[in-house]
Structure formats: structure tokens, C-alpha cells
């Protein structure tokens, strides 16, 4: 049984791969962990001496301030609203369009597909889009987040390749029972498509949650700002110093620092996704696979 005996080469490779993977684990997780412990520590204390592993003086004050600060609080709500609305609309619209496109006898099917494919390779870029949004009065409205980003042809390709694999028998029997196209989509297709819907919903949702470009360039109304846009401001030092200093001085406890609040805002911004994505992992790994084979 020579294959069971560990050669020197085996040990070397095992050790090497283990070391690399531990390093990868540390460098990908530690930065966020560092923000977490810093945000849970008293600001003044953390500024005095570095903390590396655990909060030294545990406190939730930083988070209390973050959620008391109006701009962050509102932006958090706006980000949730945008993500939920954007993802729901996109998933429903993408499902319907992709389902119809899998029907071989659909009139103009070839044309529809080519029409979509072109958008994968050509784009007008930011300037014409900006002028378009200005002309149709999308600038500075909530809908500039949603409308231009409903249909992505790449996602339609993912949906289509998934729908093609679904067994046709169920759909046929539903039709014999008198179900129409809409009923088929919502009662038969959607419930069977959890993997692909989870994947796309995650992709679209994460994109909406993280996007800073739209609020930064298409929105000036404070009420419509999302978390990434607020973070961007906190990041640019001069401005952050001013606005955060105000918050800090308004707050009676002197142990709170700007730095600590910045970390707390961070954690608020990344927590939802960090908590969700490991559960969606088994789906999006498959989704990526389909995508790149067809893509």
C-alpha cells in the first residue's frame, strides 16, 4: 500500500498548502475582525495602546452613537430599502424574461437574445448615461438606483441555463390542469429554482448594498444617500473630522473617538453581507460555474 505511506514530498506539500491556507484565512478575516474589536473597545483606550486580539475595555457606546447619528441611521434604512426593492424587482423580472426566452417556439426569440447579448460587449459608458438620466429626470430620485439595473443579460443567461435543466413533466401536467404562463412561472418554476434565485439574489443584493457609484454621482439629495456613500465621506479625512467631531462633542462621554466610530460604521455596513454569504455559498459556487461555462 504505497499510496498510504506518506513520502517526504507528501509531508512537504501538505505542510506548504496548510501554511498558505492559514495565511489566506488570517489576511482575509483579520482586517474585519480588527475593526470589530476596535469598535467594541473604548475609543480613548484603544488609541492609547494597540489592541490585536480582544477588546480590552468592552463598550457598545460607539454603536450607540452610530445609530443616533441621523445621517448614518437614515442611510442604513435607505440602503436596506434600495437592496430589498432592487433585488425583488430584478429577480421577478429576470425570472419572467428568462423563462419566456427558454421557450423554443417564442416568436422573435433569436432577435431578443442577440439584442441582449450585444449589451454584454458594448456600452455607452458613464457620460451618455448621465445625460440620459438627466433627460428622463431620473437624477436625484430613488429610481435611479433601481430602473437602470433591473435587467443584466448575464443574469438572464444564468437563469436560462438553469431553466433548461428543469424537468418538463411538471410544467406539462400543470398546463393540462389549466394553468396559464404566469401561474406556471410563479407556482412551478420559481419554487423549483431556489439555487439559481439564491445566487442571483445574492449577486444583485450585494451589488445594491455595496454600490457607491450611483449615490456619489447621480444623487445630491441627502435623504437618498446610502451607507457606502456615507462611508465614503467618513473616509475622506477632513470632512469626517468635522462632522464626526460634532457628534463626539455632542456625546457626553469623552472616551469615544472618531476612529472608533469609523470602525463601528464599518461593521454596521459589512455585517449583513458577512452574515448572509456563507449560507448562500453552496448556491453561488454552482452559479459561478454555470456562468463561466456559458459566458
Amino acid at each position: 500500500m504505497s499510496s498510504l505511506r506518506k513520502t517526504r514530498e507528501d509531508i512537504a506539500i501538505n505542510l506548504f498548502s496548510a501554511i498558505i491556507s492559514v495565511i489566506v484565512f488570517i489576511i482575509t478575516v483579520y482586517p474585519l475582525y480588527y475593526c470589530l474589536i476596535y469598535s467594541l473597545n473604548e475609543g480613548a483606550d484603544a488609541a492609547k495602546a494597540a489592541i490585536y486580539f480582544f477588546p480590552r475595555k468592552f463598550t457598545l457606546d460607539n454603536y450607540k452613537i452610530v445609530f443616533r447619528e441621523n445621517s448614518i441611521y437614515l442611510a442604513f434604512g435607505m440602503t436596506i430599502l434600495r437592496t430589498v426593492v432592487g433585488t425583488l424587482i430584478a429577480v421577478v423580472c429576470l425570472t419572467m424574461a428568462s423563462y419566456a426566452l427558454t421557450k423554443k417556439n417564442l416568436l422573435f426569440r433569436k432577435f431578443y437574445i442577440v439584442f441582449g447579448l450585444v449589451t454584454l460587449y458594448f456600452s455607452g459608458g458613464i457620460i451618455p448615461s448621465y445625460l440620459l438620466y438627466t433627460n428622463i429626470h431620473l437624477i436625484n430620485t430613488f429610481w435611479v438606483y433601481i430602473l437602470p439595473n433591473i435587467y443584466q443579460f448575464f443574469y438572464m443567461l444564468l437563469f436560462m441555463s438553469f431553466f433548461k435543466e428543469l424537468p418538463e413533466a411538471l410544467e406539462e401536467s400543470a398546463r393540462i390542469d389549466g394553468a396559464n404562463d404566469l401561474t406556471v412561472v410563479f407556482k412551478i418554476i420559481l419554487p423549483m429554482s431556489t439555487p439559481v434565485i439564491a445566487t442571483i439574489a445574492l449577486f444583485v443584493g450585494v451589488w445594491h448594498w455595496n454600490d457607491f457609484f450611483h449615490p456619489a454621482f447621480f444623487i445630491t439629495n441627502e435623504k437618498l444617500m446610502t451607507l457606502p456613500a456615507v462611508l465614503m465621506r467618513i473616509m475622506s479625512l477632513a470632512e469626517a473630522q468635522q462632522s464626526l467631531q460634532k457628534v463626539v462633542t455632542n456625546y457626553s462621554k469623552s472616551s469615544v473617538t472618531i476612529e472608533a466610530i469609523r470602525y463601528a460604521t464599518f461593521i454596521v455596513a459589512v455585517a449583513p453581507i458577512t452574515i448572509v454569504y456563507p449560507f448562500a455559498q453552496k448556491y453561488f459556487v454552482k452559479g459561478m460555474m454555470i456562468g463561466s461555462v456559458k459566458g
Binding site: P31, V206, W209, T274
Partner: peptide, 10 residues
């Protein structure tokens, strides 16, 4: 899964 704003700040 992190926004580039977060990545840049980190």
C-alpha cells in the same frame, strides 16, 4: 463581498 469603499478605507 465588501464594498470598495470599505476595502479602500481598510
Amino acid at each position: 463581498f465588501l464594498s470598495y469603499v470599505v476595502v479602500a478605507t481598510l
